[in-house]
Amino acid sequence: MVSLSWHAPATLAAMLFIIGLIGLLARRSLIFVLMSIEIMLNAAGLLFITAGMRWGNPQGQIMFIFVINLAGAELALGLILLLRLRNRLTTLDGDAANRLRDVQA
């Protein structure tokens, strides 16, 4: 059991969220965009766990379970769209997905 205040894990959550945000903004490959979204969801889950630790409330871990649930559903749809986009385009460039009309069907 840590003897730290809740500030340390909350700061860790903020830093992980920002690393995910930087990845989301900087990368063009859709694989890394999906991975950055997962990093940000995981950081939000850490903040829920931190709050649950601070107040001794199981709701924090319950919300973390729902965050995992959401991440799983989101990733399943994101990955199947990625597979279909890979069959249509030749690259996984997120910018090329803006020009789907130009692609020969």
């Binding site: 059991m1 840590v2 894990p9 997962e38 995981n42 889950g45 850490l46 766990i49 931190t50 649950g52 630790m53 924090g60 871990q61 973390f64 379970i65 995992i68 991440a71 799983g72 990733l75």
Partner: peptide, 21 residues
């Protein structure tokens, strides 16, 4: 998560997040 006193969430993180997703 384990050091923060959430052993169930730690197990879920390994099994569901790292292991399945």
């Amino acid at each position: 998560f384990y050091t923060l006193g959430a052993p169930f969430a730690a197990a879920l993180e390994v099994i569901v997040y790292a292991g399945a997703i």
